[in-house]
Amino acid sequence: MALTLRLRLWRATLYLIGQLLGGVASAALLRGLTGDVTPALNKVALGVPLQLAVIVETLATFQLVLVVLTTTHLPADMSHLFVGLSVSLGHLMAVSTTGCGMNPARSFGPAVITLDFSNHWVFWAGPFLGACLAVLFNDLLLRPRWRHPRDWWAELKELYVVMDKQQQVALSHCK
């Protein structure tokens, strides 16, 4: 969302931290309730090359993020249905090769609780790449928002410079 300029970078960072903490908390809760977190731990399956694992995670995340971006204008019930079906498709596609992370926070929590970070970079690189590709595909091809890279740059500057000036004005009125 930060790449699409729908969310400022500091807020995206707070969301990321919140998701990571939520992933750790849920994995700890799972361990507390069941005594085992291993089934929730994402691992690259034996015999699967790491490059293929990254591609699988990229594709699973790509289709999920693309569905989220393209269904935001639909009624909530419809968008929730499509996102749920997208998550299901991602699991069907990726569970046998990577355990299906699709979100680094979902992979991070069990890894922290088990202290098993083997090939954990796959569960960051794949989703990051998939999300970036989905944003580019949506904003440049499906629903173009910018004609040139300079249009994106102008909107970025407006988002940060104008918003900062508005905040300064608002703060000056509070004194």
Rank of each mutant, 00 (worst) to 15 (best):
F82G: 14
F82C: 14
D77R: 12
F128Q: 02
M1C: 10
C174P: 03
T38G: 07
E155T: 03
L115M: 13
R11H: 14
R106N: 01
T114K: 07
S26N: 14
V112L: 03
H73N: 12
V95R: 04
A27P: 13
G47K: 03
L66G: 09
F62T: 12
G84Y: 12
P110L: 04
L7W: 11
Y160A: 03
D77P: 05
R143M: 11
V112I: 08
S107K: 02
G99C: 04
A134P: 05
G99T: 02
A111I: 00
L92D: 06
L20G: 11
W124I: 00
G109N: 05
G35C: 12
A170F: 08
T114E: 11
N119Y: 09
R145A: 03
V112N: 07
A111D: 01
S86Q: 05
L89M: 14
V24G: 13
K43Q: 12
L85D: 04
T38E: 08
G47C: 01
P127F: 12
R6K: 15
E158P: 00
T38P: 05
F123G: 01
V112A: 06
A60M: 10
K175I: 05
L59S: 08
T34P: 09
L9P: 04
E57Q: 07
G99L: 00
S26R: 02
T34V: 09
A28E: 15
K175R: 10
T114R: 06
D151I: 00
V135Y: 03
L64R: 01
G130C: 02
Q51E: 15
V24P: 10
T70C: 09
M163R: 15
A131E: 12
R147A: 04
L159W: 02
L156G: 13
S96G: 09
W153A: 05
M93S: 14
L7F: 14
H91T: 04
A12E: 09
P39S: 01
V161T: 11
C100I: 06
Q166R: 15
W153L: 05
E158F: 00
L81F: 15
I113Q: 13
A27M: 11
C100S: 15
N138P: 09
V162S: 12
V83H: 03
L85F: 08
A40T: 02
L74H: 10
A76F: 11
W146V: 01
A53D: 12
L159V: 04
G99P: 10
M93F: 15
F117W: 07
A131T: 06
F128D: 02
H91C: 04
V56D: 13
T72G: 15
L142E: 02
T61G: 08
G18R: 09
T38L: 06
L33E: 07
G47W: 01
E155K: 03
R106E: 00
L20I: 15
